[in-house]
Design a protein around this nucleic acid. Structure first.
Lengths: 339, 339
DNA sequence: TTGTAGGCGTTATCAT
DNA sequence: ATGATAACGCCTACAA
């Protein structure tokens, strides 16, 4: 004899399984005396409904599948944390699965979710939209997180890199910096590309007369240090470095100081992301509330499942400027032209 | 019409559902010609087996429930990361759920997992063993992670705080420090208690003639700074601070340096955990491989589920000494008595 | 208000 | 090798 079933409860309470089901699901049409007998039987037997049977019958699992890439760092942990918060608030469970580079295995992972989840949250920054579209069961509602490109027909959630870069460029100009260089992230990365493109545009728009230099980088601390070295040895009169992420900014910061530069007086340094280390080092950067993105993704998905929200379109999450000590405090009266 | 079922496949391939099931599960007793027809039908229809129906029939879900506390920081993210790695390797899915302080809701969360998971991984550093034992469905195999006390009848996994503290005390003594103070963590925390107790014991055993001072702390950077302040203003000749975690060690480090002390010459500083910031600041500490604990927990649970491992007892995960620049390099010839 | 019975999609046990 | 069919545990018309 395994776990007690609804039948055992019915027998014990001398009622039919239908009544037990009704009582358990809080339907009104059960005499309160009957309900009491049933509840007593439930606790006596330690009965717990079987979720598999339930989802089979209802074709509703009250669970959300989360598909993440293989290498999950800070970003994914944070994101899942936000999802978890919102999901448990809404009474949903989270089912985790990671998407390997191997598209064969990815398909497997997605299959394994069929029947256990009502919808999907997909974090796939490096999967091509087309192959993603192909792998996703089209019957399953899904929200895409930080997916490259807008081409997909699914609702999505993204960091508003453009707005973030804009705010940072504005801050640098307002603080009096004039010769700004952007250290970009790796080519393959969507965020890196967006940030670099947005930098060029922002400079063009906010300070068309100033040069908008862009150097190559790789999102690593060493990459940032290398860029700094190049700046130190070069003859361009750089007075601010805007790195595409915090780790590069930190590498930069150290290398510049080691090279005898005063930060922020001689040269300003800024990053993007606001990782814990950035706050610790008092680095000026753009804070990205990743957990909020995760929470919002769950919220949108659940709304779709409940038939409430329209759910279409890509929603942008605006980063927030954290002006700290690696840039000069904003001058009271600025000569910078506003857009 | 919803998703295609096994019946649709059977119809399309002009065979019975039994044959389809057999073919899909790789049983041998299917003519290869029949199998081909079935597989063709499967791809044509885009059929994917329904996991709920499958678990109902097999009473096996191929999923593992992960129960975490509400406030999950670095520790939990890391742990889940390790679980995820091992689970996907073994063909299991991870079902996340968090255990609120409210024991009512916790019970609910556990109930919701009935039927969808084959076993449980429970991270509950602050739940009393007794109430934990009561909340867990006794029919469900479970592995406890960092649970307080050995009293439970469940197999468990813990950080070997005792071995870690031992190694650190040995390192400090070997490095020539003689007046060591331990800054403890908060009272409620199991790891904090173990570390403090182990410190007392280690000093008693390795250097019975030296004082084994313990100060109160709270695992925060500010707490560490406060302890440092007390040391700076006190008259005890402290030459080493062994904080119960890295954040306190870091707070200490800054406060001591701000107070004019040279580290490691005047005073040594060490932590516990090896958080990313510790490596960054070159802090001597004990590395705890949290992800490995998570992975190992999955491995043990799956072994239990497959009826392989005995699974009993609490397994300890030994931390690793990371000797860095906040302690003096170990003297070639040491006068410290070995145990 | 309560009970009977069919169905949800699979697997497994029988026959054939 | 293949096909019927009874579970698995639950929900829900439909009847009473």
């Amino acid at each position: 004899m395994g776990e007690p079933t609804i039948r055992d409860v019915a027998r014990r309470a001398s009622v039919s399984v239908a009544s037990v089901s009704r009582a358990l699901n809080g339907l009104e049409n059960v005499r309160s005396e009957t309900r009491d007998r049933i509840m007593a039987a439930v606790t006596e037997l330690g009965y717990v409904p079987n979720a598999a049977a339930r989802s089979l019958s209802l074709s509703r699992a009250h669970a959300i599948g989360v598909v993440l890439p293989d290498l999950h760092g800070e970003f994914f942990s944070e994101c899942v944390r936000g999802m978890d918060r919102e999901a448990s608030r809404r009474g949903y469970l989270l089912l985790l699965s990671n998407m390997h580079d191997d598209s064969e295995q990815s398909a497997m992972a997605l299959r394994a979710m069929r029947g256990r989840v009502d919808g999907l949250l997909v974090m796939a920054p490096h999967i091509a939209p087309a192959s993603l579209e192909r792998a996703l069961p089209q019957a399953l509602p899904a929200v895409l997180i930080n997916a490259p490109g807008e081409v997909t027909s699914r609702p999505g959630l993204r960091i508003d890199n453009r707005a973030g870069v804009d705010a940072m460029v504005r801050h640098l100009l307002d603080s009096g910096y004039r010769n700004i260089v952007h250290v970009a992230g790796p080519d393959g990365n969507v965020d890196a590309q967006e940030r670099a493109g947005a930098f060029r545009d922002a400079m063009q728009r906010l300070a068309p007369d100033l040069p908008a230099r862009i150097m190559a980088g790789d999102f690593t601390e060493e990459g940032g240090a290398a860029a700094a070295q190049e700046i130190l040895e070069g003859d361009a009169p750089i007075d601010a470095v805007f790195a595409a992420n915090d780790m590069m900014a930190i590498g930069c910061l150290h290398a510049l100081r080691a090279g005898g530069k005063r930060v922020p007086e001689d040269i300003g340094v800024t990053g993007f992301d606001d990782v814990p280390l950035a706050r610790y080092l008092d680095l000026t950067t753009m804070r990205v509330r990743i957990a909020d993105i995760g929470a919002r993704a769950v919220a949108r998905l659940v709304d779709m499942l409940d038939g409430q929200g329209p759910g279409d379109g890509t929603e942008l999450q605006a980063p927030e400027l954290m002006a700290r000590s690696t840039t000069m405090p904003r001058a009271a009266s600025s000569a910078v032209p506003r857009a």
